[in-house]
Design a binder for these strands. Sequence first.
DNA 1: TAAAAATACTCCATAGGTATTTTAT
DNA 2: ATAAAATACCTATGGAGTATTTTTA
Lengths: 304, 304
Amino acid sequence: MAGAGYPVSLRQLQYAVAVADTRSFRRAAEECHVSQPSLSAQIAQLEAGLGVRLFERDRRRVVATDAGQEILERARRLLVDAGDLVEAARRRSDPLTGTVRIGVIPTVAPYLVPDAAKSLRASFPKLTVAWLEDKTATLAAALGAGTLDAAILALPVPLAGGDVEHEEIADDEFLLATAPGHPLGVDTTPAKAEELRGARILLLDDGHCLRQQALAVCSMVNAQEVGFRATSLPTLVQMVDNGLGITLLPELGVAAGLLRGTGLVTRPLASDEPARQIGLVWRRGTARRQEFLLLAKELAERAK
Amino acid sequence: MAGAGYPVSLRQLQYAVAVADTRSFRRAAEECHVSQPSLSAQIAQLEAGLGVRLFERDRRRVVATDAGQEILERARRLLVDAGDLVEAARRRSDPLTGTVRIGVIPTVAPYLVPDAAKSLRASFPKLTVAWLEDKTATLAAALGAGTLDAAILALPVPLAGGDVEHEEIADDEFLLATAPGHPLGVDTTPAKAEELRGARILLLDDGHCLRQQALAVCSMVNAQEVGFRATSLPTLVQMVDNGLGITLLPELGVAAGLLRGTGLVTRPLASDEPARQIGLVWRRGTARRQEFLLLAKELAERAK
DNA sequence: TAAAAATACTCCATAGGTATTTTAT
DNA sequence: ATAAAATACCTATGGAGTATTTTTA
């Protein structure tokens, strides 16, 4: 078991990952705050220790070899795990303290974060939350890379690689939103998907997961999407208010005042229509699992 | 992403694990081939870097603190992963070479290993296999600890922690074995479990997984186990030959000559009775996955 | 030629060693 | 009294720095 010690060091792996990320020894050295020769030496030593060339150095670019690809992938995971180990120790000496980086998707952030931040500050005064707003794909990547501690996403989590756990925060139902006077808005009983058939539907831009989820409702009845798309929920609301069509809005946003200042009318969807689940997601093995469970509980309270 | 570098080193973690394993700084130092003060210094530095005390040093014993328990667990995983990374590089530069440590359970080893070793030597001449015979629980632990590369076990794998993959090698059917002239042995048609009702059954000692699997067949019909147990299959065969009862034997052993020199009679069990599956198991993330797939294929051929 | 990585060397921070002290039973 | 870990202090390996050369589009 003891063997002869590992012929690699975490620092060397860190440097190698930086080289892979920046595709340059010089830039990697900058990023790691060491001189280029120092970094070169460490990479050379790493390659010697492993008995394998990791990078092919061409004149104007550095590319990972086939073996390098695999080693780098393992190195990234190892470094994330090492970070988790360190973080675990920090948690031990002082739990619910320090800074936690949480990503939130744009269709949830404005309607949950302000309230949540206030509530968390009250419940966990020593915990600082750095909120980050971005689309699902970006957040998922950051989570895997260890630059994000947790993320508030729509479930199920579409994470390519990487082992994650989650805890549900809220069921976010869709509401059918129409301009005042629109025929679909007169009735106030729950709307069946059937009623959308042939209606002019406005949706969010691509890249928003909310778009996919709304499409799932629409596609069932072949509803007709109009030719242009909104880049945010407030824009979408404006467009509907201007009579360009109808849309589906998340209850969470509406409850948080998304419709303030407009004349929009909403109806719930019939209960058999799909709702989207919002959850708090984190890397399995994170040091802060306990905290995230508490956080999720607190957030679930707030979402009601 | 770059941050300030990790305040821990693989070497420090190695030392810490050695201390946890030996429960002594002095013995850990020996195991790591360094002086005791050197190791003490590294542990102190590690504790300082993590901001947490890992070990409680009492007069005559060293015990891991609560935090130490968790950190050590993470450290072990990290070191295994680091070993896999190094191994992955080695594989790259020279695949199907070197030594691979494979554990085998006692009820399979004598009947598969001799043949398999010969066949593997022919197919992969540069690969040396170090065979290890032990019970399932021991092998599983060694696999998790990284002191074993793979194991031939009965499926499903009863691994507590640790992520493993497997590939099936063989379906090992049970044969009903009786002393010559025993009423259950006259017929040669497949035996129904029903027929075992009330019979005096001989089984292996505890700790052998084969015992559990045979019990699964017996318990269904409430067969009666005799008061003593065999410690190995050959002993079991002798006992049956001496008329102490009947038993269930794995086809694999019988095919390999387990009954040679005895008068035992066997009948297959009816096809709806459970057979045990033998598989090759390895840690997920091992560097040698490709080799193990080839190995399993080769072993599956041999098992026929 | 110019930009990037490799080499040459110097320096110092630190892992490791030996000798010794402290501590707890 | 004794066994084990901590401390003191010295050595030397190797990681990091600056200056320079090599390499190749």
